[in-house]
Write a protein that binds this DNA or RNA. Structure first.
Lengths: 194, 194, 194, 194
DNA sequence: TATTAATCGAGACGGTACGTCCGGTCTTCCA
DNA sequence: TGGAAGACCGGACGTACCGTCTCGATTAATA
């Protein structure tokens, strides 16, 4: 049991931290493509070879850096009120996306999908899906409580909510301060008059 | 006016075409990062230096290739019926996004935003905005006709429609065949029961 | 007869001059290798293509430029006195070699011998041989007049005189102001005591 | 002291050798200008980048290759007899210059003097000066022994001996098989009758 | 006078090479 | 064994030339 890594010199956990931090910083400055292991290593006061002791590839490092970045923020508390909880979730989502490199990282993952699918996979598994599942659960429970129409396609509803941010960001449109409230109202009520 | 390019040997327009085609093909195979000018040049039966006569950088080439790619498809006809026209637009949008490299290209543009903002700018100007404006116009006219509630935030509505695709694609969820119809119904009607 | 170049627009002889001048200037700045037709063309307010109307290659241009450069200086008068005439010749030789690019040009010709033998051939034919022949004639006549020992190898004697300059220049040694006199005396008298 | 190169993976000395050998071979085939790092790298079974780890530029590589080339040949033994030792030295000099690329390399160094003075400096320091100093010493000792006239300018005498080769080579004249003997006799005895 | 043949400017084009940068792997010593 | 240092291979980038080419505009002699 726990046979791994008992012999030899133990890893410096502080070095782990420095590497991830340096990677995140580089990521925020120029995205995945501009991030170079050389620069990360220099910034972390170590060498490329040492990074490769920890990560199999640039993509793996970045993936771990992303997980590390999100590990900090806890999830918001829920109230039981659908509208309120949706707004809270979207506010949280928005806060995590408004960091300078979020869209760049997601973009890198999409761009590198063929070459290094791990990046996108990691992102989905640790970041995107958890948010989606949270919203999904909120809506699912509301549907059970009959607050939502029975024919509502919940996955699609989630994509409306989250996707709105993506669409605005991709188009370069400003995202209004009260975006969560506006969006939740509009998604719930629909566009049609009456 | 049109003072440019009257002197000197004229460009071989067929070479323009070959370069752009090769670039698009490379783009579809491995995304922006994997695209190399060397390979593009070889595939276009020319040399890197000749490509640099046309484009100042890899990013500029790719940006132009993207414009070129979309130039082919015409826009769909409209019927005047809101639901029908929204579905038609989304079907068209979906068709253009389901090409193998679309999300990768958008991702590359997002990833490279700091390093080479032209790429994202070009994409927005020529691809993303035109679609957004079309949907915006559709909804705006419907609002004037009182088909939509007066308080509807049209930009946000557009982001719900288009963003749904982005969100599903980013999450890796399959996009159902009747996505346009399902989505339009749900966006127009809202999620709430009654 | 004189069938060449009667029809069509005549060449601008002033352009010939500008090209050669520009070539010589570039040659003096950085030698053959650093001389680029692009820069020569620009400096002569013309284009590479126009230069190629006159010269088949970079080497041919440079060869002509060299001939042009030497065309200016006339040959020195002779007095009939061997020692005096040798000194005069060497002074003239030295003056023509002390221009900043002379050794560089000869070096270029040697360096490029395999690739473009015309350069070295032209140099030999127009510059080097004429000087050699002049010295050869001087010594030959002196030998007939019995001023020189009958067993003297005249070609070798010429090589001692001219070669002294080359050897000093190649070694980077300073060439003394009275080099011609010192050398002629030493070559004529020999090194041995008595 | 010797603080250099104790850490890190040591250089493959055999690769050093392969690179220098490839460079010398390329040099002999086409001179400095035709030598390309790409071809050197290929011939040495390595890459340009690896060559640049060792040498800052093409010129630096070639300079080192030249030093390496001469390192092989030892210097000839001396007898104490002036005429004999001069002949021996010149035979050795001639042998080293009759390799196919010697004049081309010296020519390249002269041609590149402005652009890359290291090349000529290296050549002088390692090749040319050592020969010159050897001859200088020979003549100097002879002068002390009163074999040479006291007014003899020794540097000039060396330049007569060595320069003769340069002059013949530059003029394209054939160098007679008994050039060392002929030249030494003529330099020592002078040209004048009696 | 209209034609013809060349020059000239401008710039495209295929090549070849340069020097730099980076990713991943490796080899060596030191702790 | 971990870690620092750095060599090594492979591949791409952007730049600089070379020599050729294709245009259009110009400039004389000629038919």
């Amino acid at each position: 049991m726990c046979s791994k890594q008992l012999r030899g010199r133990p890893r410096q956990t502080e070095l782990d931290r420095r590497i991830l931090e340096a990677a995140l910083h580089q990521l925020s400055e120029g995205g995945y493509a501009r991030l170079s292991l050389e620069n990360v290593a220099t910034a972390a006061h170590t060498t490329r070879a040492t990074i490769y002791l920890r990560y199999a590839s640039k993509a793996a490092l970045v993936a771990d850096a992303i997980i590390h970045a999100r590990g900090v923020g806890g999830l918001p508390k829920l109230s039981g009120n659908l509208r309120q909880d949706l707004v809270t979730q979207l506010e949280h989502f928005r806060a995590s996306m408004d960091t300078p490199y979020s869209m760049a990282i997601i973009g890198s993952a999409l761009a590198e999908e063929r070459a290094t699918p791990e990046l996108l996979a990691t992102l989905r598994e640790h970041i995107i899906r958890s948010r989606r599942d949270m919203l999904h659960a909120l809506l699912h429970e509301a549907q059970i409580r009959n607050e939502l129409a029975p024919q509502v396609h919940i996955d699609l509803a989630v994509s409306q909510l989250v996707g709105s941010y993506y669409a605005l960001a991709i188009a370069g449109d400003p995202i209004p301060p009260d975006w969560p409230e506006l969006l939740v109202d509009q998604v719930l009520s629909g566009l049609l008059s009456n």
